[in-house]
């Protein structure tokens, strides 16, 4: 392993502050440089490790950029058909009620082809955790317009910008889920800065703990970037996200359990 390190004297196990989680495998992530997926994976791995859920967790991976997620987290996985992750997770949770079951889906998977599965799983109040990565574009297939694409935003299938008269308005599926009686905890976070990473980690940890209570579906939306799809550098993409995505998709809790 080729490494480049700072002051050598400080590098001792006793001084360790931060290290990649043991749950993450040694496989190199297939994502583009600067993609929020990697950060979201790492947060999830850290929480599974810290909560001691490695042998309890069953993930359902989607179709999309994160389709190979089963290669990166060393837990049990099931691959679902496009958009059907909440339906598959429902079945797993009902058959193995003592396990911690979660899905990890992108916006093309959760908000486009899987809208029905998502809404009905949340409406039934299935005891699953849904992690939703929203980058407003179909990243894997080459940056086509997704239901979550912002008005006026350019994509390969809306080269003049999304025209709301013909293409409709962006779908705030997290807000829809928050209105359903079956959902228990619904929140929207991001992972582009260290402060937001901490907040997201707190939110996912809360959601994991609520899962143990079997009170209903938890949904954590992570507003993320797609530097390749947006045709920007990762740093520009994060800035663009702050300026354009956050006004439309404001961060914060949308539904918290009544105390």
């Amino acid at each position: 392993m080729v490494e480049y390190s700072g002051i050598k004297e400080i590098i001792k196990p006793v001084n360790l502050v931060y290290k990649k989680s043991e749950i993450m495998t040694e496989n190199t992530l297939s994502y583009c440089p600067g993609c929020g997926h990697g950060t979201a994976h790492r947060i999830l791995a850290e929480i599974i490790g810290e909560e001691g859920l490695q042998s309890e967790a069953i993930g359902v991976s989607p179709v999309g950029c994160s389709v190979f997620m089963y290669n990166y987290l060393n837990i049990d996985w099931q691959e679902a058909a496009h958009g059907r992750a909440p339906a598959v997770a429902t079945a797993i949770k009902r058959l193995l009620p003592e396990k911690f079951v979660f899905t990890y889906q992108g916006d093309g998977d959760l908000a486009a082809i899987g809208t029905a599965e998502t809404i009905h799983a949340c409406n039934r109040g299935e005891n699953i955790l849904i992690i939703f990565i929203n980058n407003g574009i179909y990243g894997m297939t080459g940056g086509q317009m997704a239901p979550t694409t912002l008005p006026g935003m350019k994509s390969s299938t809306s080269p003049y910008g999304r025209d709301v008269r013909t293409m409709g308005y962006p779908l705030k599926i997290t807000d829809i889920v928050a209105t359903l009686p079956g959902s228990y905890y619904v929140t929207r976070q991001s992972v582009h800065t260290a402060a937001n990473v901490k907040k997201t980690k707190k939110a996912i940890r809360k959601a994991v703990q609520y899962q143990k209570l079997n009170k209903g579906t938890c949904l954590v939306e992570i507003v993320s970037n797609c530097p390749s799809g947006w045709k920007m550098t990762p740093v520009q993409a994060n800035k663009w996200m702050e300026e354009n995505m956050f006004p439309y998709y404001p961060l914060g809790d949308l539904k918290t359990p009544e105390e």
Binding site: L16, K20, M24, T28, R42
Partner: peptide
């Protein structure tokens, strides 16, 4: 995103 940094 790729978890390449370890901090002491």
């Amino acid at each position: 995103p790729d978890g390449v940094i370890t901090v002491y």
